[in-house]
């Protein structure tokens, strides 16, 4: 019993270390759908977000904070760039909150540096990333 508990603890610590190493929080939404389980506010348009996750299952949702995304016309490139990635199943832009929502396949390792690079190629700056598992 104790051996199993220690093994489980080891796995949890390893998973946390992995997550921190990638600067990504693998977290779930609580039932209110407006906060992460650690209490941080999600800062997305909730109606838009709920529409976005409709029909998605076994996915990772990357919520990327972007600076300089002030118009629809200039955000188009972000959507096009991420849609070229075969691991991306859906992309949306929340202009009001300066967020890009990207649905990745569950087994994809999300690399924030890669996301930053793609956003920068569009002329904007990615500043933060949260990853939600659904």
């Amino acid at each position: 019993m104790m051996k199993n508990f220690l093994l489980l603890l080891l796995l949890i610590i390893h998973a946390l270390a992995q997550a921190n190493g990638n600067e990504i929080d693998n977290i779930h939404l609580d039932h209110a759908h407006d906060r992460l389980v650690d209490g941080k506010k999600l800062e997305v348009d909730l109606k838009r977000f709920e529409r976005f996750i409709e029909g998605l299952a076994y996915s990772q949702i990357a919520i990327v904070s972007v600076k300089g995304m002030v118009c629809d016309f200039c955000a188009r490139g972000i959507e096009k760039t991420f849609k070229r990635d075969s691991d991306v199943t859906k992309v949306d832009v929340d202009l009001s909150n300066g967020k890009v929502l990207i649905a990745f396949k569950r087994n994809k390792t999300i690399d924030f540096d890669d996301i930053k690079e793609k956003i920068l190629a569009n002329g904007q700056n990615a500043t933060d990333l949260k990853v939600l598992i659904i």
């Binding site: 904070s65 600076k67 002030v70 904007q124 700056n125």
Partner: peptide, 12 residues
């Protein structure tokens, strides 16, 4: 050519 750009959360 883009000489300079400043992005903020609400402006560019």
């Amino acid at each position: 050519s883009l000489l300079n750009r400043k992005n903020t959360k609400r402006s560019q």
